[in-house]
Design a protein around this nucleic acid. Structure first.
Length: 287
DNA sequence: CCGTTAACCTGAGAGC
DNA sequence: TGCTCTCAGGTTAACG
């Protein structure tokens, strides 16, 4: 579900509440996430202080005061909720899943702090939590990721090299986390509309200018989405009122048969199925 | 090696 | 109302 901008927003909110705070206790209600939660997870986190909260691609990463690390991936439907002890009913939802009602039965993990707790809820259980014993295993795990799209590492030289000899289409390349890590299905369509390139274009047909435009659009769209607080689809509103608003800025995603947002274009948005993912584009504005 | 497909899950919404 | 079907923001093992 959440792509880079949403994970970034969740990370920022988390940071405000848990930075330098001690985890009093962890309760695991269901270990069967995408991967089984480490059987000693509770023991390893108990009493540890949180030294840093960060984001790598779509992962939230947390470092503890005993040189261990863990990461949270929200999958398609994972959400985090901050619940203050004094206001049990007033949850702060730090996520973007579309359902306004999240059954308690999907509260798989609970992190207890002095005056609040953080709940990990995930109906589909595509998310996961992984613990690392040291910095080396932590870094090693993330070394398989491609570059961060908002870093200087995503540049013309890097992408040209990655696209060289590839036989894939550009949509699949944008979704390939080993090339660029953090873009998901919504932003891939939005980025390609912004760069005026059709999603099914084979990358070996792209010229240097087009590759450059894709890089510019990637950074532009992701940064704008972060500024807007991420995307919350299907009218999801969190109880804190901090709903993201980038869904109002979608130009093509989920807009099949609607008018192309380019006012001089009278075309309707088309929907394509690429590798079993819905893809939206304008076949006049995008070449 | 490469690129594609199937699989992992639950729940919402559409159509009948 | 309820049944069936499709779809959903992700990742990756298995396959050809």
């Amino acid at each position: 579900m959440p792509e880079l901008p949403e994970v970034e927003i969740v990370k920022r909110s988390l940071q405000k509440s848990v930075y330098l705070r001690k985890i009093l206790k962890v309760k695991v209600n269901n270990r069967n996430l995408r991967y089984k939660v480490d059987k000693n997870f509770e023991k390893k986190l108990k009493g540890k202080k949180i030294l840093n909260i960060s984001r790598k691609a779509k992962y939230i990463t947390i470092s503890l005061d005993n040189y261990t690390f863990f990461c949270i991936h929200l999958g398609m439907s994972g959400t985090l909720h901050i619940v203050k002890n004094k206001f049990e009913n007033k949850k702060t939802n730090l996520s973007f899943y579309h359902s306004p009602v999240l059954g308690k039965k999907h509260n798989h993990l609970i992190f207890y702090f002095k005056d609040f707790k953080i709940i990990y809820n995930d109906p589909r259980r595509f998310g996961f939590i992984k613990i690392f014993e040291n910095k080396r295993t932590f870094n090693n795990y993330f070394s398989r990721n491609g570059c961060e799209p908002l870093s200087k590492n995503l540049n013309l030289e890097y992408l040209k090299k990655k696209l060289n000899l590839s036989k894939k289409n550009i949509k699949n390349v944008l979704l390939d986390q080993k090339i660029i890590s953090g873009i998901g299905n919504i932003y891939a369509s939005e980025i390609l509309f912004h760069s005026k390139i059709r999603p099914n274009r084979l990358v070996n047909s792209l010229n240097q200018k087009e590759i450059s435009n894709i890089i510019i659009s990637t950074k532009f769209i992701l940064n704008k989405a972060i500024r807007k607080g991420g995307s919350s689809i299907r009218d999801f509103k969190n109880s804190d009122g901090n709903t993201g608003s980038f869904q109002n800025e979608f130009k093509v995603y989920n807009k099949e048969k609607e008018n192309c947002p380019n006012s001089s274009c009278k075309n309707k948005i088309k929907k394509l199925n690429i590798s079993n993912r819905s893809t939206f584009y304008c076949n006049i504005c995008q070449k």
